[in-house]
Design a protein around this nucleic acid. Structure first.
Lengths: 255, 255
DNA sequence: CCAAAAGTGTTCGCATTACACCCATGT
DNA sequence: ACATGGGTGTAATGCGAACACTTTTGG
């Protein structure tokens, strides 16, 4: 524990400087499954969340946007900062060394990687079909994984993912969600599946529809989805005015 | 905007290193008012939020706890990280220089203060009466201010305060609040005033009581508050088992 | 004995819940 | 024709909002 006496304005040692990175939990929705975008590292061989560093003149949000643009090809990604991770032990001390050696890379220029890292966690919502996953320079793969099939991730990335999911579930309670995850036109059952998947519960078809419609955040279109089995469902799209207003003011709960 | 090509693992310049500080919004409740703990800086002459730096082996939470312990004398403070502020322009460029000169202090050793700073925002809830405000080495005063009488603060501290308040109001919707802000024993009207003050609205006495009691987070004691005018109200205390459970699981909302 | 605050109970309406029925379509 | 999924309606229930009456205490 650092005590008061150690803190001294006249000696701004590296104590006050931190390596800072960003980690993003990118959610997509496909085939009734909630997906996350993951990278497989060249060096470390493990799966990890997409992330990167913050430029000198960037805000965290700008950096996250830039990073995700590179990984997904999508320009304006909806993202939200949810927590900064700071445990000094979040990176196992021997971690970099072991893996660098394994990969046959000299540690000489990479000593800094072995130091403590803070990471700012973002979660992002993207329309699955618009994403073209692209590995970064240090990764061999970039792929979607179903959230319940994500195995063990690098460092504390499992924890980051878990907290992102929890945050997303909370958001769902008082904010509209879907505009960023679904295509422009979608059916009510699709929207419902999305909610069910995120929440991990089943919802009543009819009550769900009534509730969503009561918020006025979606508009029914004249068209129906064709080419699918059984009765053709109506298509809906979000009413952005109402939707964005709801994003700010919340959906329910009065207190 | 930093482009991909500028980011290079082989040149871990100061791009990846950031000055990192913590700012804390400490809320207290006194005389039916929501209070915030503020410092008046020696150098800068302006009021600011209590804050500080993160030690090499500390988590952000440990650092915030340590800092607030020094400012308040209270050991275990309830605190929550709510956002990391990163706007490169959050500090006006000439800011440090001007104020240092005004204070007649040489800038020689303080150039680092003029660089970009990231700040992690925490909000904290404390029992007002337990706090003994203590200025830090660089401040002349440490005082409680009523939230609606806070004037202009240093840098972006007004924004940090606003977002903390907003977060607190959100928390109130799905989490119990009060244990950290009220003395051990309190009356129902006192708890109600707390809620009203935070929310900025009036609530119905009877409905409020019913709702709180339905959560089972408070227990009624045999005692009543004596020495006050009019009818003596019952005293209550929090049922910590239920309270802490509610902190984790939330209070209402089903979806 | 009266004003102000606190304890207790009731009604009303709306929103959520839990259902049932009909329609459309592909096999 | 029928199984499957989608569209629409309705009764029951519960919770929150609004409100009335009684009780206690200091002045």
């Amino acid at each position: 524990m650092t005590t008061k006496s150690e803190i001294n304005l006249n000696s701004p040692s590296s104590v006050y400087l931190s390596h800072l990175s960003i980690d993003c939990v990118v959610f997509g929705f496909h085939e009734n499954q909630l997906k996350v975008l993951l990278l497989k590292s060249n060096f470390f061989g493990e799966w990890s969340l997409p992330g990167g560093f913050v430029g000198k003149e960037e805000t965290l949000e700008e950096a996250a946007t830039r990073i995700l643009q590179e990984r997904t090809g999508v320009e304006k990604i909806f993202l939200t900062q949810f927590r900064t991770f700071s445990d000094p032990k979040r990176k196992n001390p021997g971690f970099v060394k072991e893996n660098m050696e394994k990969a046959g890379i000299s540690l000489e220029n990479f000593e800094w990687l072995n130091q403590r890292f803070l990471s700012v966690g973002f979660y992002a919502l993207v329309e699955f079909s618009k994403v073209e996953p692209q590995p970064d320079l240090y990764s061999e793969k970039c792929e979607w994984k179903s959230v319940d099939e994500v195995g063990e991730l690098m460092m504390d990335h499992n924890q980051i993912l878990d907290e992102a999911l929890e945050t997303l579930r909370l958001q769902l309670r008082y904010q509209p969600i879907g505009y960023n995850l679904l295509p422009e036109k979608f059916t009510m059952p699709e929207l419902q599946k999305l909610y069910e998947t995120i929440l991990g519960t089943e919802l009543d078809r009819r009550n769900f529809q009534r509730k969503i419609l009561s918020y006025k955040i979606v508009k029914r279109l004249a068209e129906r989805r064709t080419g699918v089995a059984y009765k053709a469902p109506y298509l809906y799209c979000f009413d952005l005015d109402v939707y964005n207003k709801a994003l700010k003011d919340g959906l329910s709960g009065d207190w």
